Simulated assay, not measured.
Amino acid sequence: MKKVFVLVFLISSVGYSQILDPVKWSTSLKKVSNLEYDLIIDATIKPNYHLYSLKVPKGGPLPTVFIFEDSDDYELVGAMTEDKGHTAFDPVFELKIKYFENSAKFKQRIKLKTKKALKVTGEIEFMTCNDTSCVPGYDDFEIAIQ
């Protein structure tokens, strides 16, 4: 019964995804060394919404996922990291889940393989929920390195 409720809950909210836009994304760059940079992707989350972590338990909401386009100009160093966030029991999913309120910061270190200017591009897939609905989301990002 729980799985049917969650499925109906998610499907019913998909229609609202065109109207609601509970997360705004922005990017910045921090030079770590001559060849390494931290790509910083910030989420500003509307009040009463939760954005979920990079890792969520099985049976939970969709995690936040960053997909970097392949490039011969750089390589990813390690895994994407995220702020501490909050971990609490979610009554809808009946699980302890890590989420963010108001804002979240994600970082990915890269190592350049070239000295020419380049752009790091990719996609963000995510889900936000409030007390009444969940909204799946999608956005693109582009970070220029001079």
Rank of each mutant, 00 (worst) to 15 (best):
L29G: 02
L118N: 10
D70S: 14
D83H: 08
V77N: 07
I45W: 01
I40M: 07
D21Y: 11
Y99N: 09
V120A: 01
I19A: 13
F66S: 06
P61A: 12
N34L: 14
M80G: 03
S33W: 08
K113C: 00
K105G: 09
V14R: 09
L112I: 09
V56H: 06
F100R: 01
V135Y: 05
G15L: 09
Y138P: 01
N34D: 15
L10C: 02
K107C: 08
Y74W: 13
T27W: 01
F106S: 06
T81E: 15
P91C: 02
E94Y: 04
V56D: 04
C134W: 05
N34F: 07
S17M: 07
L76K: 12
A88Y: 10
F141A: 07
F141M: 05
G85N: 07
F66N: 11
S71T: 02
S12D: 02
T132F: 15
F93W: 15
E125D: 11
E101T: 15
K111D: 05
M1I: 08
G85D: 11
A88G: 05
S133C: 12
A104K: 03
Y138N: 07
L35E: 15
P61V: 13
I41D: 00
E123P: 00
L20D: 10
V120P: 00
K84G: 09
T27Q: 11
A79C: 03
E36M: 08
V4I: 14
V92F: 12
K113A: 08
R109L: 04
Y37M: 04
G15T: 11
L39A: 04
K2I: 08
S33R: 04
S12G: 13
Q146T: 09
Y52C: 06
Q146N: 13
Y49W: 15
V65N: 10
K116V: 13
E142Q: 14
S28M: 10
L39S: 04
S33Y: 08
I40K: 12
K3L: 13
Y74D: 03
L51M: 07
D90P: 10
E36T: 11
G137K: 05
P91Y: 11
S133L: 15
L62P: 00
P63H: 10
G85L: 07
G85M: 10
N130H: 07
T121V: 15
F89L: 13
F141D: 03
A43Y: 04
L35Y: 14
T64K: 05
T132A: 14
K3S: 15
K113I: 02
I145W: 08
V32I: 15
P47M: 01
K119L: 03
K98T: 09
G60L: 02
L95V: 02
K98R: 14
I11P: 03
D139M: 05
E36W: 02
D70K: 14
K113Y: 10
Q146K: 13
K116Y: 12
A43I: 04
K31L: 10
P63W: 02
K58R: 13
G78E: 11
F9N: 09
K111I: 03
V77T: 06
K58Y: 13
M80H: 06
F126C: 08
E75H: 04
D21F: 08
Y37V: 00
G78C: 06
M1K: 10
N102G: 00
